[in-house]
């Protein structure tokens, strides 16, 4: 359980994290989503006390991280795959961390096996690929068998197999009742891993809700319709809770009606349909919609939001 209250971090005049409040609860995977530079890493560093907060508090299992008697047994942290001396072997790195808490040597071997590092464990970390570095970072996070895991961009640099491994591991750890808090700027990754999502944009929490709600927060469920008689169908569909967007001469995006409803309506009015596709708003869409105003540097004038109706709203 992580509790963040009014947390802020200022660097001079700029606020990297600006008065954020949220809880990360046990037994589920909580995704921490936001564009690069949104303040995700800073927030995680504040939680484990690597950076001092300008204002507010962050507690883990009821206490500030530094006040725990056995911090590594409470919280496992992957902040940065490169938080390792490049001249040391993976085993010695983990042994050194384990020694601080009197964690037994066999646990070091366990986490090495768990993360699939056996063959490279005695090699110097300087020669590791990014993926192996990530695995070592995750091994270090698991060392104390902690009830809470904070993983910053754990799938960064991993191959597809590694990505699935992290996803499975995160779900498994949450299923064991642990608190799993992982950040990513990849929304698609979150859709498949997280139960709950906190979206951060420019240092502020802009959404804190279950994955399903975040998806629904996009433009709702869109149905793509292709018909040579687009004008007529648009007129038929018009209603107080329906939004029809004309995307092309023969294409309509409809929200507020399901595909069967549209199909039946079209059949009743003898409108020919060439296509009728329910397209669930992706998390990607939701994320872009949520952060559209929050991204600090826009890439040109593109708008990712499909929410602007130009058709015939009644």
């Amino acid at each position: 359980m992580i509790e963040v209250r009014g947390l802020s971090k200022h660097y001079g005049a700029t606020a990297a994290v600006d008065d954020i409040t949220f809880d990360v609860r046990p037994g589920r995977v909580t995704g921490f989503l936001g564009p690069n530079g949104a303040g995700k890493s800073t927030t995680m560093r504040l939680i484990v006390g690597l950076d001092a907060a300008s204002a507010g508090t962050a507690t883990v299992n009821g206490r500030p991280y530094a006040e725990h008697r056995a911090p590594l047994r409470e919280v496992g942290v992957l902040l940065d795959a490169k938080a390792v001396h490049t001249g040391r072997s993976a085993t010695n790195h983990l042994r050194a961390l384990a020694a601080t808490h009197g964690i037994r040597r066999s646990r070091v071997d366990e986490v090495i096996a768990l993360t699939g590092l056996e063959t490279v464990a005695s090699k110097r970390v300087g020669g590791f690929s990014l993926g192996m570095g990530q695995r070592l970072g995750i091994a270090a996070a698991l060392l104390g068998d902690p009830a809470t895991l904070i993983l910053d961009e754990p799938v960064n640099g991993l191959d597809p197999e590694g990505v699935i491994w992290v996803r499975t591991l995160a779900r498994h750890l949450a299923a064991e009742g642990r608190t799993v808090f992982l950040s990513s700027h990849l929304m698609s990754e979150m859709a498949q891993t997280a139960d709950h999502i906190i979206v951060l944009g420019r240092g502020r929490v802009i959404a804190d809700a279950p994955v399903g709600d975040i998806l629904a927060m996009s433009t709702g469920t869109i149905v793509r319709v292709r018909t040579p008689d687009a004008d007529r169908l648009a007129g038929l569909l018009a209603g107080p809770d329906v939004v029809v967007t004309r995307t092309d001469a023969d294409r309509l995006d409809v929200t507020g009606r399901t595909a069967p409803q549209i199909g039946e309506l079209a059949a009743g009015a003898a409108v020919v349909l060439h296509e009728l596709t329910p397209a669930s708003g992706s998390l990607e869409d939701a994320y872009l919609a949520l952060t559209a105003d929050e991204v600090q540097y826009h890439a040109g004038g593109t708008t990712g939001s499909p929410a602007s109706p130009e058709g015939t709203p009644s």
């Binding site: 008697r69 056995a70 911090p71 590594l72 047994r73 001396h85 001249g87 040391r88 072997s89 010695n92 042994r95 050194a96 961390l97 384990a98 020694a99 601080t100 808490h101 009197g102 964690i103 037994r104 646990r107 366990e110 060392l143 104390g144 068998d145």
Partner: peptide, 26 residues
């Protein structure tokens, strides 16, 4: 399975620093 160990101890930190010192070629 408990990973053993209960808390951070100064003895443990000393051991950790000794491991770090001797595990570098430099």
């Amino acid at each position: 399975a408990s990973p053993g160990g209960s808390a951070v101890s100064f003895g443990g930190i000393l051991r950790s620093e000794a491991i770090k010192l001797f595990s570098l070629r430099s």
